[in-house]
């Protein structure tokens, strides 16, 4: 997927870097943009470095603590049974 405003080569120069950071966090940057930002830009931009690592730590926490509510087996059986009778 590409947005016109993103497909333009975005330099990670000042002013654009927080915008690029947002796109990366939101999963909307290209692999190349992401690699460039993480490998090169973060080494020289302390605010981005800190925000990036903070956001990643939050995401790891979210994934490990908030993404693991599995549907109860009984409920799954129930749904399948109901669909069977509707059918």
């Amino acid at each position: 997927m590409s947005h016109p405003e993103q497909s333009q080569q975005m330099s990670v120069a000042k002013g654009n870097c927080l915008e690029m950071l947002r796109l990366i966090l939101d999963g909307e940057a290209t692999e190349e943009e992401k690699k460039n930002f993480i490998d090169k830009h973060l080494e020289t931009c302390m605010p981005c470095y800190r925000t990036y690592h903070l956001e990643m730590a939050i995401r790891d926490l979210l994934k490990s603590k908030c993404g693991n509510h599995e549907a109860p087996a009984e409920l799954i059986e129930n749904i399948k049974r109901m669909i069977g009778t509707v059918r």
């Binding site: 693991n68 509510h69 599995e70 549907a71 399948k80």
Partner: peptide, 14 residues
């Protein structure tokens, strides 16, 4: 549809 049931339950719970 069924393969997404755990993600869907998590979303419903949240």
């Amino acid at each position: 549809f069924m393969p997404h049931i755990n993600s869907m339950y998590n979303f419903a719970y949240r």
